[in-house]
């Protein structure tokens, strides 16, 4: 899922300062699962904003909504009937959702209520970790199912570097060395011959470096 963290309330209060009628829009997708932008978070954030603003002598009116997904046009369309009654939309969906709202409602200022994180997994309640950078050219079948681009701090294709110590990455003891993980797994799978092959230079053009990406599947259109 796409993960995120709430923005500090001070930052949000500063963003909404010019407005006294806003929509707080959540999303039932990824951000609900990682508990940063779902229905409950919409309620808590709205309540918090009302309390803070009224305490400061500047009451704010908030419409609380949570869309099925902010990354699909049909759900965004559901806001059309009321969005123009408000001065701004504070979205706590991921950056993709917020931008899609902005594209559809061109005269409404869009404010981000969360900092979008990464493509990750729930390692345990309250703890998420990155697993994929969406680089556009998956090699997991060669690396024991562990991604060198994401799990190695240097995205090395021939790791580990000299900074790998007792399974930890040089960036910190809390970060496992991605290449130690890969090697352990390749050994368990009896695929160490994958390790010793020289890998071609990665084409980063399928990643963000090629510019904003688009997927067109003619068969689906």
């Amino acid at each position: 899922m796409i993960t995120g963290t709430p923005k500090p309330i001070e930052e949000i209060l500063e963003m909404v300062d010019p407005y006294d009628r806003i929509v707080v829009a959540g999303c039932y997708g990824c951000v609900t699962v990682c508990r940063v932008g779902g229905e409950k978070e919409v309620q808590v954030l709205s309540s918090t904003l009302r309390l803070a603003r009224e305490t400061a002598g500047k009451k704010i009116t908030i419409k609380e909504v949570c869309l099925e997904r902010q990354c699909d046009p049909e759900y965004i369309e559901q806001m059309r009937s009321y969005v123009h009654d408000y001065q701004a939309v504070l979205s706590i969906a991921c950056g993709a959702g917020i931008q899609f709202l902005a594209e559809k409602y061109t005269t409404t200022p869009l404010l981000p209520g969360i900092n979008t994180g990464f493509l990750g997994v729930t390692e345990r309640q309250g703890e998420w970790a990155e697993r994929c950078q969406g680089c556009g050219d998956c090699v997991l079948h060669l690396t024991g199912g562990i991604c060198p681009v994401t799990r190695c701090a240097k995205s090395l294709f021939h790791g580990p570097c000299g900074g790998s110590v007792q399974g930890h990455c040089e960036v910190g003891k809390d970060t496992p060395c991605g290449w130690q993980l890969i090697i352990d797994r390749l050994k368990a799978l009896d695929q160490m011959d994958n390790y010793t092959k020289l890998k071609p230079y990665k084409g980063w053009n399928t990643s963000r470096d090629g510019g904003p990406r688009r997927i067109v599947r003619e068969d689906m259109i």
Partner: peptide, 22 residues
């Protein structure tokens, strides 16, 4: 190269376009 975290500019963008083997 050591990770940029250790230097003066830990906020720098790192490159690692190719690795040392490559």
């Amino acid at each position: 190269g050591d990770h940029q975290k250790f230097g003066d500019d830990p906020q720098a963008k790192n490159v690692f376009d190719i690795d040392s083997m490559q």
